[in-house]
Amino acid sequence: MSKTAAPGTSVQLYSVRDAIAADLAGAVARVAEIGYTQVEPYAFHQRTDEYAKAFADSGVTAPSGHAPVIDAEDPDVVFDAAARLGMGIVIDPFVPTDRWQTADDAKRLADRVNELTVRAAAHDVRFGYHNHQWEFTNKVDGRPVFELFAAQLAPEAVLEVDTFWATVGGADAPAVLRSLGDRVVAIHVKDGKVSGDIATVLPSSESALEVPDALRAAFENQMPAGQGDVDVAAILAAAPQALRVVEFDSYAGDVFEGIASSLAWLNENDK
């Protein structure tokens, strides 16, 4: 019998993207068999009907999802798809490092997120952003540019903090979560090595999916929750309100076994 997911635990389907590409319905079913009752799809507006059927067939829900909205020509297409899937939160997962350099950059991005938050609300959806490491590595007058960005968000805008990447970027992730409070509606839970190529090599400025070989290899050093350098227990304690979303950018072993191990650890340790 599969283990039942702890309340508030989801998994980013990007973790199993190869299986999704080969057989979306089968991949979602396998995630459900592991014990996840919630999932976080990516680019869901491109395969909305397929996702809807797979979720219904497998009995999972999608409280949140990722899509590139900040640069979208028609964001309402994404928000419409989210509403169709019963999704309450849409997160843009990637704005490259070259657009996180200055105070003006932070304001420009915050203004865009605020604008999109209003548009999302018309679909009964909340909107927000998901970080990588550069939003914390890049500084303005000694402050992470992410701080400037977050300070200018409208109260209705939300954040999904990738706690692994925040740690890689040199942040005290639990302190960041405490400072942001209820604005953090979800966190990415992942673990692994936080130094070396993973801290210094960046993906392309076009897409988080395009990464150099050194970074791809460093991704494979990611580990199930509780097995790496990240203080996952302290992170969970700092954000009790946040949806826990397990994710691997990559994994050296069987990624389904990886997400199963993370789920088991969360069920045991996320009290």
Rank of each mutant, 00 (worst) to 15 (best):
A238T: 09
R119N: 00
D92C: 00
D57F: 14
M223G: 11
S10M: 00
F94I: 04
A121K: 11
L13V: 01
E160K: 02
A217W: 07
V161F: 09
G35W: 04
L266F: 02
A208V: 15
R17A: 05
N138Q: 13
L215A: 03
I235C: 05
V245M: 07
D104S: 08
R178C: 12
L148A: 10
T200I: 13
L177C: 08
Y129D: 05
A21D: 14
A157E: 03
D23F: 06
A25T: 12
A22W: 10
K271H: 13
F136G: 01
G192T: 05
S2L: 05
Q101Y: 05
V189D: 03
V185S: 00
D249F: 00
A83F: 06
I235T: 12
T200F: 07
K190I: 14
E115A: 01
L180H: 03
M87A: 07
A62H: 07
A150G: 06
G88S: 13
T102V: 00
G88N: 01
D231G: 11
A25P: 02
V95C: 10
V39P: 06
A82I: 06
S15D: 05
L215R: 09
V90M: 06
D141A: 12
D105Q: 11
A120T: 02
V118Y: 10
D270I: 05
A19P: 05
V245S: 11
Q152F: 10
G192F: 04
E247P: 01
M87H: 05
A225E: 07
L116E: 07
S207R: 09
D57S: 14
H132V: 08
L236S: 03
D74W: 07
A264E: 15
P212T: 00
A52L: 12
L202F: 14
A5W: 02
N221L: 15
G142P: 06
S262G: 08
P96Q: 11
T61A: 13
D71F: 11
G26T: 10
D80C: 01
H66I: 00
A225W: 05
A81D: 04
A208W: 14
A83V: 03
V255R: 01
V245G: 00
M1Q: 12
D231E: 14
A122Q: 14
L209T: 07
A106F: 13
W134V: 03
F146A: 12
E147H: 14
G181S: 10
G253M: 13
A29N: 15
A110G: 11
D213N: 12
D270Y: 14
A21R: 13
V16G: 02
V90H: 01
S250Q: 14
Y14E: 00
R143P: 00
A56T: 15
R108Q: 09
Y14F: 15
P93M: 03
A166H: 09
A6G: 13
E257L: 14
M223Q: 15
P224G: 10
S250W: 11
D49K: 08
E135M: 04
W134F: 13
L263N: 07
V194G: 08
S205Y: 11
G88K: 12
M87K: 09
Q227N: 15
T4M: 13
P68E: 08
Q241C: 08
R143H: 15
V69Q: 12
I235V: 15
D111R: 03
V161D: 08
Y14H: 09
G228A: 04
L263W: 06
S195Y: 12
E220S: 14
P212W: 08
F146N: 12
F55S: 05
V245C: 05
E206D: 15
